[in-house]
Design a protein around this nucleic acid. Sequence first.
RNA 1: GGUCCCAUCGUCUAGCCUGGCCUAGGACGGAGCCCUCUCAAGGCUUAAACACGGGUUCAAAUCCCGUUGGGACCA
Length: 471
Amino acid sequence: MTQVRVRFAPSPTGFLHIGGVRTALFNWLFARQQKGVFILRIEDTDQSRSTDESIQAIIEGMKWVGLDWDEGPFRQTERMDLYSSHAKQLLEHGQAYWCHCKAEELDARRKEAEAKGLSQKYDGRCRDRGLTNAAGDAALRFKAPQEGETVVDDLIKGKILFDNSVQDDLIILRSNGYPTYNFSVVVDDALMNITHVVRGDDHLTNTPRQIPIFEALGFPVPRFGHLPMILGSDKARLSKRHGATSIMAYRDMGYLPDAMVNYLVRLGWSHGDQELFTRQELIEKFSWKNVQTSPAVFNPEKLLWVNAEYIKISPLTDVAQALMPLLEAAGLTDDVRAAPAGWLAQLVVLVKERAKTLVEMVDWVRPYFGQAATFDEEAAKKFLTPAIAPILGKLLTRFEALPVFSKQTWEAAFKQLVEEEGVKMGQLAQPVRVALTGRTASPGLFDVMEVLGRDRTLSRLRQGIERASRA
RNA sequence: GGUCCCAUCGUCUAGCCUGGCCUAGGACGGAGCCCUCUCAAGGCUUAAACACGGGUUCAAAUCCCGUUGGGACCA
C-alpha cells in the first residue's frame, strides 16, 4: 500500500470560511487515520484576487482549529515554471495546441450555436491547424479525448460516468501565459503525489476534465471524493448574508475550537447516533462510507449546543485558558492574577453549566470580580427594599459570628433563620443574591459565597443592607 | 441551454449497499411536566419526516423507471 497523501488547497481571496475548514477537516482526519501526509497548498494563481493577508488568515484559522499540516504551505505562484514546462510537454507530444481564437469571436460563435440549439462547446477550429504562438498572444488548449467515457469512482458518491464527446478542449495556458485552474491543479496534485483528491462538490464536473490531463502527462490518476456543500438556512450556498462564515469570527464569539470541529464533522458525516466525539475518536471512526451525499444546512443553534457541551466537559484548565483572552479584553485579568491559583478554575466550575459560549461566560463571571457588587437597578429596586433590611441584618449578624467560611455551616445558619422567621427560602435568597452578585440570576447562593470568600460576602451583605435601608 | 449531482421530522442525521426486526430511531430546536433559593443544567413526556407516480416482490424508506423540485459546473 502506498502512503496516503491528501491536500487542502484554498485560494487566498478572503478569510478562511466554514466550508473550507470542513473540507480541510475531512482531509486531515483521513490523513491522520491512515498515517498519511496532509499538505497545505495555497492556490494563488489568480493574482488579482489573492492577498498575503488572506494567506495569513488561512494559516491562523488552520492553527486555531488544530489542523496541522505535514508539508507546505506551498504557493502556486512559486511554481509557475512547472506549469509552463508541463504545458510545453503536452504541446510537444501533440496533446495540446495553440488556439488563436479571440474571446470575442468565441463568444459570438457560442451565442450563434446556442441560437441554433447546438452544443456551446469550443468548435475545435484551431485543433488541427498546427499553429504556432509567434505573436505570443495565443492560448494553449488541451486536446481532450472525444471518444469513450471517463469514469470517476468517487469516494463519496460512487461511480459516475461522463461522456467524452461533450468534453471541451479546455484552455490550459491563457494568452498571458498563466495556467488555468484545471491545469495547475492537475500539475500540482500529480507532482505532489496526491493519492486522494477530496474537495467540494462544486468541483465534481471539473474531474472528468482533469483526469485526461493526468493521463496525457503520464501520471497516475488519484482517487477523487466530492464533499456536499454547506447551505444557509434558505438552502442557498452558505455566504456572508447567512451570518458569520469566517472561522475566526467563531473564536471571537466564544466558541471552542474542538466544538467547532465536532459540529463541522457531524455536518455531513455520522457514526450512528453519536453526537460528541473526541479528536481521537474522530480519527478512528471516520470513514468515507458515512459521509452524506446531499448538502447540509448550517444550523447555528446546534453549534451553540455543541459548544455548551464542550464547555461543560472540557478540562477546566483548557476552558480557563481559552477564557483568558476574553477576560483580558474585558479588563478583568488583574483580578485573576491577584487571586490565588485555581480561583479562576473554581469560577469556571460555577458558571460552566450556564454559559453556552465564552463570551457569555465572561458576563456570568463578572460579578465575582472587584470588592463591591454592581447592582442591576431593577433587581435592587425589586429585592433590596426597606422591608427586607431587618432580616438581612439578622443574617449578617449570624454570619459575622461564624469565624471561618464553610458551605455547610453557613447554609445551615441561613436555613435556620429562614425557619425562625417563617419565610420562604426564596424570600430571603433573592435579596441576598442581589446583595452578593447585583443580579437576580446566579449559581447556588452558597457556591457564590464560597467563591467570594468570607470577607467579601460580609461586606457585600452590608452594602446590600445599606442600599435596602435607604431605598 | 448542455452535462453532472442530490432528495427521511423545521434542521443535522440513523436505516438504504446485503428488501421483512421501521406502527421509521437519535440529536438540535419547539411544547409540557418534574427537580428547585434565582438562572441554568438535568430527568421525563410530546408534536414533527420516508418529495410524487409507476413498477419488481409474498413484502420497499430500502431495488428499477419516470416526474417534480433543489443544486453545481460550463460559459
